[in-house]
Design a protein around this nucleic acid. Structure first.
Length: 283
DNA sequence: ACCACAACCTGGCCGC
DNA sequence: TGCGGCCAGGTTGTGG
């Protein structure tokens, strides 16, 4: 579910509430959620520790818990909810797999229907996020950096953008939105893009992600932020989930196809299919 | 280097 | 109503 904007929004929500709080109690009801420890070992290790700053790297939520760090990847259906009141809807939820009680009685719930999400407790975050590509919203991610990545490979642009080792944080929804915005077909080979297309793509990556963060992310189904609120970016999606609806730019019906085994939404007019030779073109 | 596919899980939706 | 099949915001490992 969550891509960069959703994780960023959750991180901001937790930043306001979690730092300075001490873990008093913890429970883990789906053993495999904690990838680095047994449930027992994890609970013993973190109890009594106090949270420091909360941040994000790619799609990972990063919780400082000196002297170590907790990294959380929400995968498809993971969600975090921090409740300060005495009770909460999540208390008896069958899909809550981790629960932390902090010193003022507040509770942090981790809910994950499909159980794909993972928690990591490590000495050095680089053990987990060391292979990630650059942060697309960082000030030093320039069009030239994107160009270096694209020209260094001969892959279809969509799977390349989804590859976290290339650029960190993009997922299926935002890649479809970004490619529509930049008017680039998802199977276009990365090394065949022109200078101006790369600049358009660079601008689209940043503008789409920033707009999505501003609206608190996209809720297709499960996603809720740290305060259990839905996002609002789903209301302004241009192509994702809009098969058959008119393209906001030209009015042609949005088409759905498979690219890299992922459902993919495009406007066939605004994002024309590359010629065969451009697909296989060398040099 | 790049791609296809299965696996990890559950639930919702569609058609019969 | 029930059941099978397909779909889903992600990642990893295997094999071609």
């Amino acid at each position: 579910m969550p891509e960069l904007p959703e994780v960023e929004h959750i991180a901001r929500g937790l930043s306001a509430l979690l730092p300075g709080r001490t873990v008093r109690d913890a429970s883990v009801t789906w053993e495999r959620t904690v990838a680095t420890h047994s449930a027992e070992g994890f609970i013993q290790t973190i109890t009594g520790r106090t949270f420091g700053p909360v941040s994000r790297r790619g799609k990972f939520l990063v919780l400082d818990l000196p002297p170590q760090t907790v990294l959380i990847h929400l995968r498809m259906t993971g969600g975090i909810h921090l409740c300060s009141g005495p009770r909460d809807d999540w208390e008896d939820d069958a899909h809550v797999h981790v629960k932390l009680t902090v010193d003022d009685g507040g509770k942090l719930y981790y809910r994950d229907t499909r159980k794909f999400g993972r928690w990591y407790l490590v000495d050095d975050p680089m053990e987990i996020v060391g292979d990630l590509g650059p942060e697309p919203l960082s000030a030093d991610f320039a069009a030239g950096d994107l160009s270096d990545i694209l020209l260094d490979h001969r892959r279809q642009i969509k799977p390349l953008l989804l590859d976290q080792k290339m650029i960190a944080g993009l997922g299926n929804i935002y890649v479809d939105e970004i490619l529509w915005t930049a008017q680039i077909h998802p199977v276009r080979r990365s090394h065949t893009l022109s200078r101006s297309q790369i600049e358009r793509l660079h601008r689209a990556i940043r503008s789409v992600l920033l707009a999505a963060i501003e609206r608190g992310g996209t809720t297709v189904r499960d996603y809720r932020d740290a305060c259990d609120q839905m996002g609002a970016y789903q209301h302004v999606l241009c192509v994702y989930g809009r098969e058959q609806e008119p393209c906001p730019r030209c009015g042609a019906p949005i088409a759905k196809l498979q690219v890299a085994q992922r459902g993919t939404h495009i406007c066939q007019v605004c994002q024309p299919e590359p010629r065969e030779e451009a697909l296989h073109d060398s040099i």
